[in-house]
Structures are given as C-alpha cells and as structure tokens.
Simulated scan of single mutants.
Amino acid sequence: MTAPLPVRAIDTAMDRSLVLGYTTIGLRVRRALPGWPADPRPGALAGKDVLVTGASSGLGIATVEGLAALGATVHLVVRDEVKGTRVRDEIAARQPGSTLRVWRCDVGDLDDVRRFAADLGRELPAIHAVVHNAGLMPPERTESAQGHELSMAVHVLGPVVMTEALRPQLAGGRVVLVSSGGLYSQTLRADDPEYRKGDYSPTTAYARSKRMQVEMLPLLADRWSLDGINASAMHPGWADTPGVQESLPLFRSITRPVLRDDAQGADTSVWLVGSEPAPPAGRFWHDRRARPIDIVPSTRASQDARTAAWAWLAQAAGL
C-alpha cells in the first residue's frame, strides 16, 4: 500500500529532522499513519533458517526474538560462544518452542568467517536470510587478523566474505546489512578506506564504514542477484544499544528519553526478512521505507570514488 502524498510529506519531514524521525517518536507516529507497511504474517518464517550476526546483545537479541516469533530457526552467530549460549537460553525461556542455535565466528577475521561458512554450509542446504548485525566502535585504530581497519573489517569485509561463501545456500534468499544514520555525516573515502591518514576518530571510522556499506550495496545487490539473492541495508534509528551506552555516553544522556528500545530498532530488519513479497533489493531502509543515502550534496560520492571503492573491496574481500 502506497501512503498518500501528505503522509509521505510528514514522513520525509520527520526523517530530515533526525530527532523526530530517528527516535521512538518517529516510529510511533509512522505506525499510526495510513500506509504503514503490513507486518509479516504469523508463521511467515516457519521451516526457514535465518542467521543473525552480533546476536548476543542489543539489536541482535531483538532481531533474533523477532525472527523466532515468526517461526524461523534462528542461528545466533557470535564471537563469544559462552555469552551466546546464555543469550540463547534466555530467549528460549521467553519464547518456549523457538528453535535457536549458537555458532562461533569472529566476523572481523576473514579466515574465521570462511571457516564458519564452510562448517555451516556443510550442515544447512538452504538459508532464507542473513542479517549482518555485528558491529563495534574501537576507541583507537585497531587492525583485524588480516591487517584491515577493524570497523571496516567487521561492518563491510566480513559480511561480504560471509555472503559470498554462502551464496549457494542463500540462493533465492535475502541479505540485510544493518547500517547507521551516522553515515550521513561522512562521504565515501575511497582514497583512505583503511583510515591510515589523519587522527583516528572512533565515531568517524564507524560512520565511514557504514557509508561504505550503502555505497557498495547496489553493486553487491547486482552481483548477488545472479543467485536470486535480495540484498538490502537498513538503519535502526537512535536505539539505546550497548554500543551507544558504552561509546556515546553524552549523546545517550541527552537523548535517552526518546531513544528507541532494541525491538523498535530491529523492526525493519525483521520486516525485510519476513515480509512477502520481498521489498525491492539494493535500497537503504528505515522504518520500512526506502531512504536516500545522501541528505546534503557534500557527502555525495562521485562515480570515480565508487569505482575505486569497489576495486578496494574486491581486492580485500577476494571477490
């Protein structure tokens, strides 16, 4: 259902205001307006396997719960297996009858990603979806096992390598990249994807990696569409996640009364995985609607920058 023009105008105005669009206010208002996209039907994911990375905290837990409530067998992909097992047991206690499994994988370590994908691929013949939710914001520049800047490794390279390795199992399925509205503050730095120049800023590194995600999304979506894979990105708005609590304490102290809870932040991820028909691929979503990837002209990437960024990604991820 397409929303009426006045509703779309209200929605866009809230989106550009940030405070109204990204907080719990925005989601509640949008849900009440005509044209809000329908929830996935009950049992929409029954008999289907779905992976969620970064599944042991915050948005990851809420995403697992939302997918399990639709009947999916949810695979919690975590770096800390002990913590992941505890979270699985807690979710199972809240949702009796859900089917949950824990897998260990360090998404920032590309060798470990390939090892995990091989193990998983031998066991699962088909995967309905992967939600690439794992994230971090290291306080200082840190490198992965392969020597890549860690934010870029976890948010871009790991998800791409995992999806590539699982393409046979994901044929006809879906991929969701969990991004961030913080990308609007940065342009595509194809000249310095590993953040080797200038003084390192955790928030800038995080936003740059999220910018890389959405700039590369159309190219990745085209590539994976050859296997019938529907790839999208989304951002959760301002949610009161552990990452915000630990890395942005001042921001949280100011915005806490209107921050979204984890379930509100995960809503669009669950919708992208469970809705039928699948939403259009290659788009950037927030609150169940496609959004622009640029708000101000200064962040708009040139075609040369995208070409250079793709060349870096192809080499670093071994495409």
Rank of each mutant, 00 (worst) to 15 (best):
I254D: 01
D262F: 02
A126F: 05
I295K: 07
A308K: 15
G181I: 07
V52F: 07
E90L: 07
R8M: 03
W103A: 00
R174S: 09
A72E: 13
V244W: 00
Q315I: 03
Q169T: 08
P242R: 00
E215Q: 13
S201M: 06
G182K: 12
D262S: 14
R189L: 05
G147K: 02
E194K: 06
L220K: 15
L5K: 14
L110D: 08
Y206N: 00
R141M: 01
Y195T: 02
K210V: 01
G147D: 04
C105H: 03
H75L: 03
P292N: 10
S225C: 03
G228T: 02
R104C: 08
L5N: 06
H235S: 06
R167M: 11
L183E: 11
M162L: 15
S179D: 10
D304M: 12
R260K: 15
R104N: 02
S180F: 02
L157S: 03
T203A: 15
W285D: 00
Q169P: 13
H155Q: 05
G21E: 07
D261L: 03
P139N: 07
T24N: 15
E149H: 07
S180Y: 09
D49S: 14
L136T: 15
A153M: 09
E81K: 14
S201Q: 10
Q245M: 10
K197F: 12
M137E: 09
I127C: 09
V78L: 04
R16H: 10
E194T: 10
L33I: 03
N230I: 05
I295V: 10
R300K: 13
A92W: 12
E246V: 14
D89M: 03
R283W: 07
A266G: 08
M212C: 10
Q186L: 01
S201D: 12
F251H: 13
G97T: 09
L166C: 05
M162N: 10
P139I: 11
G243P: 05
W271G: 06
D109R: 11
F116L: 03
H235L: 01
T12M: 10
V214E: 00
P6T: 05
A9F: 03
A171Q: 15
W312C: 04
A118M: 03
W36N: 13
A72N: 13
D267I: 06
S185G: 14
R115F: 01
R86S: 11
G181Y: 04
G237Q: 13
D227N: 05
R189H: 15
R16W: 12
W271S: 04
L319Y: 12
D80F: 09
A239G: 04
L313P: 06
T142K: 08
L110Q: 11
H75I: 04
A165E: 12
P159L: 01
